[in-house]
Computed example of a mutant assay.
Amino acid sequence: MTVGIVGRGRMGRGLAEAVRQAGLHPLLVPGRADPRRVADLLDRAALVVLAVPFPAAVEFLRGPAGRRGRGRTLVDPTNPVFCEPPVVPPGRSGGELLAELAADRASGPDHPGEGWRVAKAFNTVPAGVLARCRVNGLPVSLPVAADHPAALRDVFALARALGFAPLDAGGIRTARHLEALTGLLMAVSDRQGLRGQVSIHIGVPSGDRTVWEPACRAG
């Protein structure tokens, strides 16, 4: 799998290194490059992660790349809850807004079926935690919100390859809760002096359900 990663900040670089260590192929492109060049590069990716601030993610979808999804999965790890001034209306989420924008860009007779399937994921994992897959001996959980089963399947495959434990959090509407959760985690981090080194494990009771146990990467 070739994983396209837009953005060369801490999140983008950290994710690219984790993808490389997992034996996948990262395609790291700068978020501020020429929009057409970005679109051309990302045509080679099976899945794309927008590791950029929320306003840049909006511009990505409004640009040429917004019409070139071809039904592929677009992962939104943004956290607009930290944007000042606020960029998302109360009661909504950045994930929902990006999914709606992707749908709008895909509509029309000139480009049917060319949209992106947006999934909210990785926003609860700080850049400094990407190289880890356990917290206190337990697998780091990765909640995923998506309306499309194919997008959910794609993100689960990537998360498992990186050593995380993905969990179906529901449709893209749930993105508002995932973004609020990140705000809580960062508040705890600040209060406890953790410097962003915080992650979560969501326990799933065993029994009739099959509980997936992730295999950590070497090192």
Rank of each mutant, 00 (worst) to 15 (best):
G163R: 00
A218Q: 14
R36Q: 15
L184D: 15
R160Y: 08
T124W: 08
E213T: 15
R92H: 13
L28Y: 13
I202S: 11
E114C: 09
G94E: 01
E100A: 08
L181A: 14
A151Y: 03
A157Q: 10
V155H: 09
G23C: 02
G14F: 02
A145K: 06
G4E: 05
E96M: 11
A33V: 12
T78Y: 02
P139R: 07
Q192N: 14
H177Y: 15
V38R: 11
V19E: 04
R134Q: 11
R117T: 00
K120N: 02
G207L: 01
G12R: 07
G219T: 05
T78D: 03
P30C: 05
S206E: 15
G14L: 01
S199D: 14
T182N: 11
E114R: 13
R67L: 07
V3T: 09
P89G: 08
P90F: 01
P53Q: 10
H201Y: 11
A165S: 14
V75W: 05
F156C: 04
W212A: 14
R134S: 08
P109L: 12
P64N: 09
A106C: 08
R62N: 11
L61V: 03
P35A: 09
P53V: 01
A106F: 03
A65D: 06
S189W: 06
A16D: 02
V140Q: 07
G12Y: 07
L41T: 13
G196T: 04
F122I: 02
L61S: 08
D190C: 09
V48F: 07
Q192V: 11
V88F: 07
A121V: 00
V49G: 04
D154C: 05
G31H: 07
E179T: 04
V81A: 14
T2N: 13
T73M: 03
L15V: 04
H111G: 06
G14E: 02
Q197M: 13
L194W: 15
M1N: 12
G183N: 11
R209K: 14
R32A: 14
L47F: 04
I202A: 14
L42A: 04
G219P: 03
N79H: 10
P53W: 03
L142A: 06
L50K: 07
I172A: 06
G31A: 06
L184A: 15
V211G: 12
H201S: 09
A159E: 09
P112D: 04
R70I: 00
R37L: 15
V204W: 10
K120D: 00
H148P: 00
D190R: 15
A65G: 10
G66T: 05
P126K: 13
R20Y: 14
F122V: 01
V188K: 15
L178D: 04
A159Y: 10
T174C: 13
G128R: 15
A65L: 10
D168I: 01
V38H: 02
L41P: 00
V58S: 12
D190T: 10
G137K: 07
D104R: 15
V87Y: 01
R191C: 08
P64I: 00
R209H: 13
V188E: 15
A127D: 13
